[in-house]
């Protein structure tokens, strides 16, 4: 087996019904992996941009980009080499935890406390996916009740 590596691919697609299914069906039908997928419309255009984090050998990644290109509503496919990548995470903590500590940690990861309720606080961080992962590991000691990750978005430098 050839070595499998993590890759970020951006896909520009026409905003139309079932375009997302076409993309995800292609991955499942051909046995490719999706680690994360984000999608949102590109402002003032008829297109949307998807950011897909995937993994595979060089040959698989080449096939993924070619097969994506073949889909009729796909305008462009970027297989990123040199990119800026960010991901956001929201974390819910019991209000009884050490809020000051949590806040300090969040700040180290481009985040802050964004909501304080009667029983829980919600913190947000936005950083490189690897750093977000690291952050999530560290904060396990503060008993997070719920974690949600946005999936990565990326831009070529």
């Amino acid at each position: 087996m050839e070595a499998s590596e993590r890759r970020v691919i951006s896909v520009i697609v026409v905003n139309e019904a079932s375009v997302l299914s076409r993309i995800t069906d292609l991955f499942s039908g051909r046995g490719y992996n999706i680690t994360s997928l984000t999608v949102a419309p590109i402002p003032e255009s008829k297109y949307s941009r998807l950011t897909i984090v995937t993994s595979g050998s060089v040959r698989i990644i080449e096939q993924i980009t070619k097969q994506l290109h073949k889909l009729i509503p796909v305008l462009k496919v970027y297989e990123h080499a040199d990119l800026v990548e960010k991901e956001m995470a929201l974390i819910k903590f019991p209000v009884s935890e050490n809020i000051a500590d949590i806040n300090t940690l969040c700040e180290a990861y481009n985040g802050k406390i964004v909501n304080v309720g009667d029983n829980v606080i919600i913190a947000m961080v936005a950083d490189e996916p690897k750093r977000v992962e690291n952050f999530l590991k560290i904060i396990t000691r503060y008993n997070p009740k719920e974690i949600v990750r946005s999936g990565a978005v990326a831009l070529e430098r």
Binding site: A17, S18, S21, R22, D25, G29, I72
Partner: peptide
């Protein structure tokens, strides 16, 4: 139908 044919056609349409 388009859900089923998606993986076995070059392209498909549901005309609304």
């Amino acid at each position: 139908a388009v859900g089923i044919s998606r993986s076995c056609t070059k392209h498909n349409y549901l005309v609304t």
